[in-house]
Nucleic acid binder design. Structure first.
Lengths: 131, 131
DNA sequence: CTGTGATACGGGTATATACCCACTCCATGT
DNA sequence: ACATGGAGTGGGTATATACCCGTATCACAG
């Protein structure tokens, strides 16, 4: 067993990701993509830069992930008034995926929440504010 | 703020990884590579498959990560008696990197250990056994 | 109205990871 | 001895992520 906290944390994140991904499989998106969809839903119409800032990810990462969801027709991008800007919106399919995915996500979230418990969630929050 | 435990956990893992990577930067390896080096040190001479099993990673991942460390001359692979097998060993440079990296790793580990606290580590362990 | 610096994005490259397929090599049963 | 199946690896492809650079566009100072 690895006693490196970092490696353990990475593995935990991977396994939890796999669990969420499996839960969301019926709607054909990963948890990273689901998260992106939710952010777009909240912020649309929104630029890639604003999305990236809001999600705490690199702009290029958001751009690439958005492209994937464009290919599967869950997102669409339209040029903004500022021609440099690419504005992202949900498609109807995207909205439907979000609606159908919500209870699936809830289940996974409840399961992990139960495993972590209140103290686990607190530790996680503490970690996020500390690093 | 994302209220998805999975996304939060992923971000936490990324940030902690960045912290360890920065700590290990003087010896020019990432924490994933450092972990691989340590496993090789413990198990050498060892096949890729055994390494992968021991580290809980995919065989192909270990193969690729090993190639990276071969390029930087921290690891070497020699053909095993079984010609299918590729046996991995530490080079002198690899051993030196491990020795020099140990205190750097310790520092990062201590810092994250302090943030997590005993309850945080317990939660993490609980998570690992549950998923 | 023009030039310059700032901003938005895309693409290249890199690590880390997984899964699946093909190839090679071994080992064992007939 | 040979065939068949299993094991070990490598490579292809995919996602998710970061950083850096180039290009296009904008906004503002002069």
């Amino acid at each position: 067993m690895s006693d490196c906290l970092c490696v353990t944390l990475r593995r935990a994140a991977q396994r939890v990701t796999a669990l969420y991904d499996e839960a969301l499989a019926p709607i054909g998106v990963t948890v990273a993509q689901f998260s992106l969809l939710r952010h777009v839903q909240r912020m649309a119409p929104v630029s890639l830069s604003d999305l990236a800032t809001s999600m705490g990810l690199d702009r290029s990462t958001v751009g690439r992930n958005t492209k994937l969801l464009e290919r599967t027709k869950l997102l669409a991008t339209i040029p903004g008034e500022d021609l440099r800007e690419s504005t992202v919106v949900l498609t109807k399919r995207g909205a439907r995926a979000l609606a159908e995915g919500a209870p699936l996500w809830e289940q996974a979230q409840a399961r992990i929440g139960a495993v972590l418990g209140e103290d686990g969630k607190r530790s996680l929050k503490r970690l996020m504010t500390a690093v």
